[in-house]
Design a protein around this nucleic acid. Structure first.
Lengths: 128, 128
DNA sequence: CGAGTGTATTAAGATGGTTAATACACTATA
DNA sequence: TATAGTGTATTAACCATCTTAATACACTCG
């Protein structure tokens, strides 16, 4: 379900959060489906249960999963986290765009990247 | 010249690198102008000279400054780091755009943000 | 020469990530 | 009711990294 990158210098719990979030956002995990238990995932990744517990706590705070005591952790439905996710992405985009503008990066470069990633969605949109 | 944010949990040397880089990229520091000495900036920020030394070493590795032994640290001219900077920004954009696409963020939202930040440069660009 | 500079080394303290060993409360099931 | 599986909490220890501290050395400039 998840593979750790040991060259990654970030904490393990952050990697678990990131990869779980990616799975959920991309639809790899259905809403209300059950996640691996704290102990089983810890066993699978050869890490301590506390580390997984910390990751799950973070995911719950971010709204991606919910917990039922004694039963397990489950995936939250999309509409519960999508608004917050969009806002976070907006913040990141603002920050990154300001850096790009300050560095003198041409608007055309950004446009090219956007159209490369959003290849399917092409219709109009990107100008006034 | 620089103000530290003590609520920021990142290492001090990272903050110094970030703020110096920002100053250089935004033109707040001219090419070939002299930076504060390791000891004087350490004094000014009330941190250890080793911490500033580490920041300057990082800035040099990233191509933003160059060092002359016994004389000081100086700002590199724009064309020496701009290409690398653009490439790094491109990488970040790709990564962020993929996340936005996966989360189902509409192209129109991105367009709005871009036009907000790149207000002056408006011409056409963002569509084919 | 002397002051200012970058650089290197070593030791110590502080913080945070991780492991480890337990313990407790809850839920589902035989 | 018992048992197993679950989330959760606590405490201690280990380790890596950031930071400070105290020095020392080589270089440049006046």
């Amino acid at each position: 379900m998840i593979v750790l990158d040991y060259r990654d210098k970030r904490p393990i719990y952050e990697q678990v959060v990131e990869k779980m979030e990616h799975l959920i956002v991309c639809g790899g995990l259905e809403a209300n489906s059950k996640l691996p238990s704290v102990r089983s995932l810890a066993m699978e990744l050869s890490v301590n249960p506390n580390t997984i517990q910390r990751a799950y706590t973070q995911l719950e705070q971010d709204g991606y999963i919910y917990t039922i005591l004694g039963r397990g952790n489950y995936v939250t439905s999309r509409n519960e986290w999508q608004t917050g996710k969009f806002e976070a992405l907006r913040q990141d985009f603002m920050s990154l765009l300001q850096k790009a503008r300050d560095a003198g990066m041409p608007l055309s470069d950004l446009s090219a990247i956007i159209h490369e990633v959003y290849a399917e969605n092409e219709e109009d949109v990107t100008h006034d």
